[in-house]
């Protein structure tokens, strides 16, 4: 496995698994307008995933398509962040995750624009505008829920707190990203991410989450107990009817 293949999988899997979780909100969001908003966001993420997985397949050179990589890999072969696979929880949890993840993606894609790999910079070029809107959407809701009623404030705080221990994984560097000159070392994004996210949290009147323990392992294919169920739902039709078309 080449570094570029693995790197494309990491970014593609983040987007794919986020898209799957986000899509679960369709017809379950607090209002119709939010169904559509989250549907749009999930589809943006899915679009990023398709391009990245297709590219990973090309780089690998073993003839695997985006569908092969999405539907016929097993849990340990997925390299997404654990943050992306966690169950949705309530709406405040979803907005906390979107704030954390989209802000990370925004900073990542802004840097990836400068990559000398044309495919990666191309994906970033299209995605930066999409994720800027995702950040805005999450920000608007975090502010309103945090600075809303007593219950919405308490739920927003709970969401921010519960997901905080999964944020450090976004910025963990390793030999691969240091070796691969077309990649962005995510550790360089952490300061700016913290600045932007805490600015929103402060304005929302919520407290800054603290946690001494931080989860990790997604980039090595180690996942939470929720990942298997997510993949079962994502993959079962494709595996029950291999090669089916409609």
């Amino acid at each position: 496995m080449t570094d570029l293949f693995v790197y494309s999988l990491r970014l593609g899997d983040d987007a794919l698994i986020s898209a799957q979780r986000t899509a679960e909100w369709i017809a379950a969001a607090p209002q119709l307008e939010e169904d559509v908003a989250l549907g749009n966001i999930g589809l943006d993420q899915l679009g990023q995933a398709r391009t990245l997985l297709q590219y990973a397949g090309t780089v690998e050179g073993a003839g695997r398509s985006e569908d092969d990589l999405a539907y016929f890999r097993d849990e340990r072969e997925f390299l997404n962040l654990q943050l992306c696979e966690l169950p949705n929880g309530d709406f405040a949890h979803a907005m906390a995750r979107l704030l954390y993840f989209a802000t990370y993606q925004q900073l990542l894609y802004e840097e990836l624009l400068k990559s000398s790999d044309e495919m990666l910079s191309g994906v970033a070029g299209k995605a930066v505008k999409e994720v800027a809107y995702h950040v805005d959407h999450a920000t608007q809701w975090v502010l309103r829920l945090g600075d809303g009623t007593e219950e919405s404030h308490q739920r927003m705080q709970a969401g921010l707190d519960a997901l905080w221990p999964y944020t450090a994984e976004m910025f963990s560097s390793d030999e691969l990203v240091q070796r691969l000159d077309v990649a962005v070392d995510p550790s360089t994004l952490q300061d700016e991410w913290t600045r932007r996210v805490t600015a929103v949290i402060d304005e929302s009147t919520c407290g800054r989450p603290e946690s001494s323990y931080q989860h990790s392992g997604g980039r090595e294919g180690r996942h939470t107990e929720h990942m298997g169920y997510l993949l079962a739902e994502l993959q079962h039709v494709a595996r029950s009817h291999p090669g089916a078309t409609w």
Partner: peptide
């Protein structure tokens, strides 16, 4: 038309819908 808690969110919902 659509529902939204305030004008800012109405604008965003309109963009999405």
């Amino acid at each position: 038309s659509l529902h939204a808690p305030d004008a800012t969110m109405a604008l965003r919902n309109a963009r999405d819908v």
